[in-house]
Design a protein around this nucleic acid. Structure first.
Length: 121
RNA sequence: GAAGUCGGCCGGGCAAUCGCGCGAUAUUGUUAAAUAUCGGGAGGAAAGUCCGGGCUCCGCAGGGCAGGGUGCCAGAUAACGUCUGGGAGGCGUAAGCCUACGGCCAGUGCAGCAGAAAAUAUACCGCCUGCUUUGCAGGUAAGGGUGAAAUGGUGCGGUAAGAGCGCACCGCGCAACAGGUAACUGUUUGCGGCAGGGUAAACCCCACCCGGAGCAAGAUCAAAUAGGGGAACAUUGGCUUGGCCCGAGCUGUUCCCGGGUAGAUCGCUUGAGGCAUACGGUGACGUAUUGUCCAGAUGAAUGAUUGCCAUGGCUUCGGCCAUACAGAACCCGGCUUACAGGCCGACUUCCUCG
RNA sequence: UGGGCCGUCGCCAAGCGGUAAGGCAACGGGUUUUGAUCCCGUCAUGCGGAGGUUCGAAUCCUCCCGGCCCAG
């Protein structure tokens, strides 16, 4: 139904309960920049949640930048993703990397998760 | 031209594509919502949370003690620990800057080491006199030495040697007078030979100020669950909003029925708002008028990519690199701290030329 | 958002206006055939940072920096 690369509210995780469900039995994908947890979704669309802790990115500016980049990347790739709930977590080094590198890393994550989720289901 | 002082301002720009959340309007839809168009969408510090206020609740926000804060004077302000003007002291050639800057003649405390002596008196080396002369007694506080700090400085007189012992000038204290709203000031007058040290960011005293919590405050609608709610009576203990007391409420018993967690909505952005002009005031600021609406999220919007330009640096002249500090969360007034680079104005000193 | 606490040698810490204790560790020496134990000695000039008050500050005051805890 979403022919365009949009990012409305229903494509996000909104409640603590939804987050804890993902944390309980996730499929993991990690690299030095991000860890992404995935779990089969209950909605019609793939959904995204963000977990950027103050420990990993101390300044609010850095946290906002990381979140925006993750959302942007998710928005552009959600067409190819299965109906799954994702939670993206950042690492301590993430804040010091340029935007282009973060986009590249996330792209690899999405394609890897696509394979993993197919195997899972 | 160089060095410096003060004040104010900016904090990259334009375009294209793809988005996010808010408001208004329109259409669709039973609702939830969806789509389209238009409008606007981070800061000078949004930060630290160091002060002050609004707002909300604590029945009223009351009294006393305790505790905390402020501390030259006057003003500004909703208020302040902020700001403005003035005074005093200090620093600087100057422009200018800095200052917790009330009170140790209310009381209490503290001062290691050194030094004779550290706060109430005294005398180590000295100096002078006398004597029974390798010393003792008396006088003295000029000189030396110690220390952060030792009973005012210079000169003359005076004396056995000295000493405010006396005098002159300076300093200090008190009073009067004059100026100033006041702090305070003085080529003024008079009195006092000098009061007796330091420390109050030591306890403390004096003056003034402060009730407590915080928008996750609080209000409304309400799945689940039955833990409850209201009125009357009683008052030992317990609880409540600052630590205690007074005062107030709840808990207890009886009677009567409606209450409320998850979640949602409101609070939530029109305000001690901001811009412009005029007037008053040395100034902080105030008054009046015209016109204006300028972020409102909630796992948390305000973005990403590309191109061109701007600024700075490097350059093999093709280009390449860099562009700070930092992200609203109820809202304002300050303070403090961080900050690439740049702009404007006023002033000071020095050098050169005319 | 609000409130509270703490930064002292490599580690654990006492001291709270007048020379910064002590223990563990480390290093050197002694004892022992060797090692442990034990004994003696040494070490770091450092009180999170910057200002101020004071003759004198780890201590008092102000502002920053870092860490921890609590309420919701």
């Amino acid at each position: 139904m979403n022919t365009k690369a949009r990012f409305p509210r229903r494509a996000r995780l909104l409640k603590p309960a939804e987050y804890s469900r993902v944390f309980k039995k996730p499929v993991r994908s990690s690299d030095p920049l991000f860890t992404i947890l995935a779990s089969p979704g209950q909605s019609v669309d793939p959904r995204l949640g963000l977990a950027i802790s103050k420990k990993n990115a101390k300044r609010a500016v850095d946290r906002n930048r990381i979140k925006r980049i993750i959302r942007e990347s998710f928005r552009l790739h959600q067409q190819s993703l299965p109906v799954t709930d994702f939670v993206v977590m950042a690492k301590p080094v993430t804040k010091s990397r340029p935007n282009a590198e973060l986009f590249k890393s996330l792209e690899q994550h999405w394609s890897r998760l696509l394979k993993l989720c197919k195997k899972y289901s």
